[in-house]
Design a protein around this nucleic acid. Structure first.
Lengths: 112, 112
DNA sequence: TCCATATTTCGAGATTTATCGAATCGTTGG
DNA sequence: CCAACGATTCGATAAATCTCGAAATATGGA
């Protein structure tokens, strides 16, 4: 993961609402969560939520797909793994996690 | 690690110069690096470097100690571990790293 | 004490970010 | 086609952040 992308990912997560949103998306897994539902759960106006989701998307941490009228957001586990890998490698002295410690949806935690 | 502290840590790292500085401090280990030397290596004016180091300190990611005229900064591995733990737990679906994968100075990497 | 060194604090300006109502854009059902 | 729904874009405003020179603080040596 190139430094520029790392900065954007960190910036994206370094905000109360976005960190909370991303946590919800991680919990939700592949299924994802609609933009409106995220706004509702976080008690943030839709336009504000949209702004934050755009930042997460720009950082590559989430993907979006349209499903009827809704736009569903999902956490991008590969991107999060990339970020964790960079931090482990460059900010933790290179102690990397074991191979099977990759980021996965919460629901797959036990079976993984 | 409480969310407020996580946000501050992420914000602290989400900046080009600060991320670079923290990387250098991780490489340096317990020995640390003087503020002026960091400014020189990163080609940033002393006052700007001081501003960024204050942010890292406020986030709890670095500690400082005076040594003669210099002020030496060191990476706080415990804080970084706390951040990694939070991210692993809350943003990675709870797949935690193995016990011995804690953040350590680069120089101790091989012996750990 | 006086000067040089190392760093921080202050202050001002420029840039970026966050907020959110109103308007706009796709989609669906009647 | 058109009204309602879900979401984004636009626009303006407020707030935070970044930058860096000048001034201030602390330390050590002559």
């Amino acid at each position: 993961m190139q430094p520029d992308r790392v900065i954007r990912a960190l910036s994206a997560l370094a905000q109360e609402h976005r960190l909370a949103a991303f946590r919800l998306l991680v919990q939700a897994g592949e299924q994802g969560v609609a933009a409106g539902l995220l706004a509702e759960k976080l008690e943030v106006p839709p336009s504000s939520m949209s702004f934050h989701l755009a930042q997460l998307a720009n950082a590559g941490l989430v993907t979006q797909r349209r499903e009827s009228r809704s736009i569903i957001y999902s956490a991008d586990y590969a991107a999060m793994n990339g970020l964790m890998g960079y931090l482990t490698e460059n900010c933790c002295g290179g102690m990397s996690c074991s191979e099977d410690a990759a980021c996965l949806p919460t629901e797959q935690r036990k079976s993984a």
